[in-house]
């Protein structure tokens, strides 16, 4: 089971990981984008981090929705509405719940990722965050074992997916303006998505 406390820890860890990797993500974005992804993610999750204490008594749906609203109005770049939609759609599947079993977790992830597809009108291979999320969801769904293993596999798949964006030509977002020149660089969105899923897997291991 993933409890609400796990998720709060997860979001706190996201704040930490994006603070830590602010420069790295921005560097990735400098190569093929507008050099703001690290700052944007840091700004958004810093704000989320600040609000977590006040969200402790909410159910998971309300928690994820609050995260969505914060990201929407603080991230600034395209990742704002994209991650915002991820959390908003995910929240819809977790309404009233205080813990998630494997099947519910799968629904939550699927809804969130579906939101990103809908919002960004992108698909696998476009060199976007979906190149981390789609294989991650696939891995989560196909892991028959326990929830923790499924989350670990999902994080592994996301990281691999992010690495696999290096040879791709971007077809969405600012990087798509570069065309052929976007080849040879890792997609910052896929990278931040993989970080987010790794932190989720790590948070689930903790006591709750």
């Amino acid at each position: 089971m993933i409890t609400k406390s796990h998720l709060i820890e997860w979001l706190r860890a996201c704040d930490a990981i994006y603070t830590e990797n602010k420069t790295y993500l921005t560097q990735l974005d400098t190569a093929i984008g507008d050099a703001d992804h690290g700052n944007n993610m840091h700004r958004g999750f810093r704000k989320v981090g600040e609000q977590l204490d006040s969200l402790a008594d909410k159910d998971i749906g309300a928690l994820l929705k609050a995260v969505a609203m914060t990201l929407i109005s603080t991230v600034g770049g395209a990742s704002g509405p994209l991650y915002g939609t991820f959390f908003l759609q995910a929240a819809g599947k977790a309404s009233g719940l205080n813990e998630l079993n494997a099947a519910q977790m799968a629904d939550v992830l699927e809804a969130g990722i579906g939101g990103i597809k809908m919002r960004g009108k992108a698909s696998a291979g476009d060199k976007t965050m979906l190149d981390a999320f789609i294989p991650a969801l696939e891995a989560f769904r196909t892991t028959p074992d326990d929830l923790q293993t499924a989350l670990n596999n999902a994080a592994d798949a996301a990281e691999k997916g992010a690495e696999d964006t290096i040879p791709l030509i971007a077809r969405k977002g600012r990087a798509s303006y570069l065309g052929e020149r976007s080849r040879g660089h890792k997609d910052p969105g896929a990278t931040s998505a993989a970080m987010m899923l790794r932190e989720l897997a790590k948070a689930a291991e903790g006591d709750a």
């Binding site: 703001d36 700052n39 109005s73 600034g76 770049g77 509405p81």
Partner: peptide
């Protein structure tokens, strides 16, 4: 823009 005096470039769905 967004309400961040240091990095004001961006868009805000709420705005």
């Amino acid at each position: 823009g967004i309400d961040d005096p240091d990095e004001p470039i961006g868009t805000d769905a709420m705005k």
